[in-house]
Amino acid sequence: MRLAGFYIFAAVVALLPVLFPDNYFVVVVGTSAGLHVILAVGLNLLIGYAGQISLGHAAFFGLGAYASAILSTRFDWPSLLALVAGLIAAGLIAWVFARPILRLRGHYLAMATLGFGIIAHVIMVQATQWTGGPDGLAGIPPLNLLGWQVDGDLQWYGVIAAAMLLVVWLSLNLVDSQVGRALRAVHGSEFAARMMGIDTARTKTQAFVVSAVFAAFAGSLFAHQQAFVSPDSFNLTVSVELVTMVVLGGLASTFGAVCGAIALTLLQQGLVVFEDYEMLIHGALLMAVMIFMPQGLFVGLTQAAHRLGSTLARSKFRRSLD
């Protein structure tokens, strides 16, 4: 019952390529949306639940991608091992930077994460001997899962869908646990959280590390799927887009982040048609959603349904007490 929404989502994801076979839009755009969902769900743990903004999350996305790219092209590591190494590297770097960065508040935190993201991007562009510089790295081998070589759009759709569902499941579990409640408590009132015995620095660090590892996971899959990475995929604009997905869908809701990621992916696909007007419309939409629907699309639309649900739950809970 707790995971009802998850099972419905999983069923839709699984049915899409069956209902629309050989559909370019479903398989290719769906894959891109899946990666965005992984990124947004992870970032939502940090921004939505722990209440800590990050304007530099593309750095971890890039870290995972470049770890996979460099290790599998230059050192001939098996792709799965490169992926795991990327996750560990992202986790470690996030852990080291979490304490000094998350000590900051509000706009100072925004600045620090922004700076972190820009520095990471500059390194991707400048450390040419490792990253290939602005031209990027090509020839990244596809993912090899214990002998099965992932090949073709449909197989990639399956792999990324599975990875995305795993991340959504982990995130749903985490939020509804002691760890997740501690996160939300830090957001709700840092004073009260500390008074309940919550080590707030440690809790924020956990959120930062988990969201970094999820981002690196998406990055690694992205690198193996595209067979090519370049710094353009991990710049400031991408970091801002990631935050946009989280906020667009609605903060502090895993399915909100899912919706935001899918909505922005579709929007980007749709706006390509408008060419030069793309930027204008993108900016106007961002402002409009934030001004008129500050709780985000998903939360705004589901609130009515939720109110109904909580009434039912309350009466059910009362009966369970008798």
């Binding site: 903004i53 304007l55 906020v247």
Partner: peptide, 14 residues
Amino acid sequence: VVSTIIITIGAAIF
């Protein structure tokens, strides 16, 4: 804070 950051970023993109 997060909302106003997004609004002004939206304005910048616009």
